[in-house]
Computed example of a mutant assay.
Amino acid sequence: MRRFLREHSLTLVFFGLFLAALVGQLFAGHAEYNERQAALGQPVLTLGSYLFSADFLVDVVENWQSEYLQFFLYVTATVWLVQKGSPESKPAGKVGLESDREQQVGRFADESSPKWARAGGWRTAVFSKSLGLVMLALFLFSWGLQWVAGWYSNNSDPLAEPMGLGAYFFSADFWSRSLQNWQSEFLAIASMAILSVYLRERGSPESKPVGTAHSTSDESG
């Protein structure tokens, strides 16, 4: 068990932080919601009712969809786009899908390679795109949840104009919720790409080794 915890500590710690933040959001969002309802003379909700409400769901998934969009764009864009000197980028000479030998697929795979990397054909093709495809699916799923939950929440608001699901997709509320999250994700990616050229975090694989030249790409510390 100790070995398992050590070898999976990065995932476990961040899942723990996620759950702690989610619980904190539940309590804070519940208090804010009831304050707003009381000010409008509307019924308040118990904590359990708020947990399963559209208001809580839309606040949660609007953040999820922007994160998965960020990772989908990041893992696919970095196939073709580079930032000289950033460990987040490949060297300019490796732009593109790279050769089967470099990617260890098909006849270049070894015994430790994943089964679908050795299989060839459609299975290797799908596996070669699997990370981006799953991130895209998670983005579309959570964005769809935001759409439906936001629509339901909007129509439950006594001060908002009721509208159909299709009309809500083109509403200012839906796109404001989406774009305010997207812009922060795009800024974070751009900032990480350029700042990692000139700054270091010793021991982190997201940083170059401390003494590596600023112009060196594709190095991990």
Score class of each variant (00 low, 15 high):
residue 86 S to I: 04
residue 187 L to Y: 12
residue 213 A to G: 13
residue 28 A to R: 13
residue 80 W to M: 02
residue 182 W to K: 01
residue 142 S to V: 06
residue 112 S to M: 05
residue 31 A to Y: 08
residue 77 A to S: 12
residue 101 R to D: 15
residue 17 L to I: 14
residue 127 F to N: 10
residue 163 M to F: 03
residue 125 A to K: 12
residue 107 R to W: 01
residue 96 G to R: 07
residue 118 R to T: 04
residue 7 E to T: 08
residue 221 G to H: 09
residue 148 V to A: 09
residue 164 G to R: 08
residue 183 Q to S: 05
residue 82 V to K: 09
residue 91 P to H: 10
residue 23 V to Q: 08
residue 157 D to Q: 09
residue 56 F to C: 04
residue 29 G to P: 07
residue 61 V to S: 04
residue 84 K to R: 13
residue 129 K to C: 10
residue 163 M to G: 00
residue 181 N to I: 00
residue 7 E to C: 08
residue 193 A to G: 02
residue 186 F to N: 03
residue 183 Q to N: 01
residue 55 D to S: 11
residue 143 W to N: 11
residue 33 Y to L: 09
residue 184 S to P: 04
residue 132 G to I: 03
residue 181 N to S: 08
residue 185 E to Y: 10
residue 194 I to V: 13
residue 178 S to I: 03
residue 155 N to Y: 00
residue 183 Q to Y: 12
residue 52 F to C: 00
residue 30 H to K: 00
residue 128 S to R: 12
residue 131 L to Q: 13
residue 203 G to A: 04
residue 37 Q to I: 01
residue 189 I to P: 01
residue 124 T to R: 07
residue 148 V to W: 15
residue 111 E to I: 05
residue 121 G to I: 05
residue 66 S to H: 01
residue 3 R to Q: 14
residue 150 G to F: 06
residue 97 L to C: 00
residue 125 A to Q: 09
residue 134 V to C: 07
residue 20 A to Q: 06
residue 171 S to P: 08
residue 175 W to F: 10
residue 191 S to L: 15
residue 172 A to P: 03
residue 172 A to M: 10
residue 205 P to L: 05
residue 171 S to H: 03
residue 40 L to H: 04
residue 213 A to E: 15
residue 137 A to W: 01
residue 105 V to R: 13
residue 182 W to M: 10
residue 178 S to V: 13
residue 17 L to F: 15
residue 210 V to Y: 11
residue 15 F to V: 13
residue 18 F to M: 09
residue 86 S to H: 08
residue 134 V to H: 13
residue 140 L to I: 07
residue 65 Q to M: 12
residue 187 L to Q: 09
residue 42 Q to V: 03
residue 87 P to Y: 03
residue 50 Y to Q: 03
residue 100 D to T: 07
residue 192 M to D: 03
residue 99 S to Y: 07
residue 156 S to N: 14
residue 96 G to Q: 05
residue 137 A to Y: 08
residue 171 S to L: 05
residue 35 E to W: 08
residue 208 K to Y: 04
residue 90 K to H: 14
residue 187 L to W: 10
residue 30 H to A: 06
residue 37 Q to W: 02
residue 155 N to C: 06
residue 1 M to E: 05
residue 110 D to T: 11
residue 137 A to L: 15
residue 166 G to I: 00
residue 72 F to K: 05
residue 57 L to M: 13
residue 106 G to H: 01
residue 187 L to R: 12
residue 92 A to K: 12
residue 143 W to F: 12
residue 221 G to A: 08
residue 203 G to L: 01
residue 26 L to Q: 07
residue 197 V to L: 07
residue 22 L to M: 14
residue 200 R to A: 06
residue 145 L to T: 06
residue 188 A to W: 14
residue 33 Y to P: 05
residue 171 S to W: 06
residue 161 E to I: 00
residue 135 M to C: 09
residue 117 A to I: 00
residue 57 L to S: 08
residue 16 G to M: 06
residue 198 Y to K: 14
residue 147 W to S: 03
residue 8 H to P: 02
residue 85 G to P: 03
residue 123 R to P: 04
residue 212 T to K: 09
residue 137 A to K: 05
residue 213 A to F: 01
residue 107 R to I: 10
residue 80 W to Q: 00
residue 15 F to Y: 15
residue 132 G to L: 00
residue 101 R to H: 14
residue 62 E to V: 04
residue 108 F to D: 10
residue 59 D to W: 06
residue 176 S to Y: 14
residue 71 F to A: 07
